[in-house]
Design a protein around this nucleic acid. Structure first.
Lengths: 104, 104
DNA sequence: TTGGTGTTTATCAATTATGTTAATTAACAT
DNA sequence: ATGTTAATTAACATAATTGATAAACACCAA
């Protein structure tokens, strides 16, 4: 599945933080992330490459700047997947809730 | 964030397939997965360990069998995260749809 | 006890991921 | 031209992941 690859790209603390920030603040140039816990420009660039190749972010070129944004489809894909199992976990939580209140 | 760790565990094709199967079929013993594309028992065991340590699956012991199931909280955590950005991706997809129909 | 099933742990090799420094490209300002 | 800013690619070192084989452990059955 292709979702495994999406998860793999998001399964790194730095990349996950990048994506969260892009989700919250909208599109940003690569350089806006150099304040992050001492990640060097080359390291940052490679993280963006991984995110690009996983289809999680989009790159737009403006002069010398590479401006990144999250592809809505990527988040929707994750949402669709998790929600498709919603019935399962809702039942599960119900079972859990029942178990927790069983000793009353 | 601890979601990055969840994504990391799911970011492997074999582990993702394990989780999907557990979600669809409910709890299953480790041995039920040995038919999967030639994954050896030790490899399978380590994948389960990763999933356990990431809090994605639960292990129940029954005689010699280790019976695994998905922790509903893990799926819910992912669902909550994606839904927290729902407005973003819904708007984004709307804009995309509009852009695609703009040439009419 | 002996043997078989189910699963895990140990050890080691191979691959992949990540980070670093140095060099490179591109756009711009002087 | 020269230097500066923004970002990337190249080359390399190190760490982490994955897998394979062998050994071990727990349980059951004869």
């Amino acid at each position: 599945m292709q979702l495994a690859n999406t998860f793999s790209a998001l399964g790194n603390a730095t990349r996950f933080a990048i994506v969260e920030r892009l989700l919250q603040q909208g599109e940003l140039p690569a350089g806006a992330f150099l304040d992050m816990n001492g990640v060097s420009p080359p390291a940052m660039s490679r993280h963006f490459k991984v995110l690009r190749e996983a289809g999680i972010v989009n790159q737009r070129i403006d002069k010398q700047r590479r401006i990144y944004s999250v592809r809505p489809q990527a988040v929707q894909q994750i949402s669709d997947w998790s929600i498709s199992y919603r019935k399962f976990w809702e039942n599960g939580l119900d079972r859990l809730a029942m178990a927790l209140s069983e000793d009353v």
